[in-house]
């Protein structure tokens, strides 16, 4: 494929937040916006307790729901494998946010070119611009424990398998989170516990309705009605068909 993947090995995360700050600097984010969120999991009772910090950001699905539901075609696949938002096309309709099976796409207040505050989809880009120039994403390059590693797609998958074998003794429930239902992802996780412990669905998938929307209704609809009208109609369809309600995000 010639594409890239990122592995987040939660068994190596010490919760230092360096990735968050490096990402904010790289991507020009205000202090209170972050592409990365964290949740910690404590299992067991004192003193037999295991603690795992989970660092979470957009998974960059191979078959991304957000890309399918976007009425503006503002979301696309980069040749690196990243799923990226074109903020100039985005109208802040929140379909991506409402339909992301992982609760990762977020619509937040951003600044447009004129410095106005506007609602725009805002999420991890897998540092697409940097990667295209051959540079590692900011989070991976600052991670001194190598809990975040970035590289050629297949090598990363192999690395994940190897790490899984290494940690199985300590974390019997360990697994690689790379859900088939969305065609696999470009950020994969080595989880220490079952996905549900981190508020993730084991069988996260692209809803059939999203496929229909993208592949049939939307192109036709756009042609007939124009994008803005479609955004309104699309909102109704999208919300009725596959809105699963608020996907709550793991806090600490």
């Amino acid at each position: 494929m010639g594409q890239y993947r990122m592995l987040v090995d939660v068994t190596k995360c010490i919760g230092c937040y360096s990735c968050r700050v490096a990402c904010q600097m790289e991507n020009d984010l205000p202090s209170d916006q972050s592409y990365i969120s964290f949740c910690e999991v404590e299992k067991g009772e004192y003193p037999n307790v295991e603690w795992v910090m989970h660092r979470f950001s957009c998974l960059h699905c191979e078959d991304a729901v957000c890309e399918k539901v976007c009425p503006q075609n503002a979301i696309s696949y980069s040749q690196t494998g990243a799923v990226v938002v074109d903020q100039e096309q985005c109208i802040g309709c929140e379909y991506c946010e409402k339909n992301c099976p992982f609760g990762r796409a977020k619509v937040e207040l951003c600044q447009d070119k004129e410095g106005n505050s506007v609602s725009r989809a805002n999420k991890c880009t897998l540092c697409n611009g940097k990667v295209l120039e051959g540079v590692t994403p900011a989070c991976a390059s600052t991670c001194y424990t190598k809990a975040i590693v970035f590289g050629e797609s297949d090598e990363i998958l192999q690395k994940a398998e190897q790490r899984l074998a290494e940690v199985k003794d300590r974390y019997p429930d360990a697994n690689i989170y790379n859900p088939e239902g969305v065609g696999g992802t470009h950020t994969i996780y080595l989880l220490a516990h079952k996905p549900e412990e981190y508020d993730l669905e084991s069988d996260a998938a692209t809803p059939a309705s999203a496929i229909i929307w993208k592949d049939y209704a939307q192109p036709l609809g756009k042609l007939l009605l124009g994008a803005t009208t479609m955004a309104v109609i699309g909102g109704a369809i999208s919300n009725r068909l596959f809105n699963k309600g608020e996907h709550h995000e793991g806090g600490e």
């Binding site: 600097m25 790289e26 991507n27 020009d28 205000p30 202090s31 600044q111 070119k113 410095g115």
Partner: peptide, 16 residues
């Protein structure tokens, strides 16, 4: 005034 309108300024408070 906003600190900068330079879109390439990548500090978190660039437009505050």
């Amino acid at each position: 005034k906003p600190w900068t309108t330079d879109q390439t300024a990548a500090l978190p408070f660039a437009q505050s």
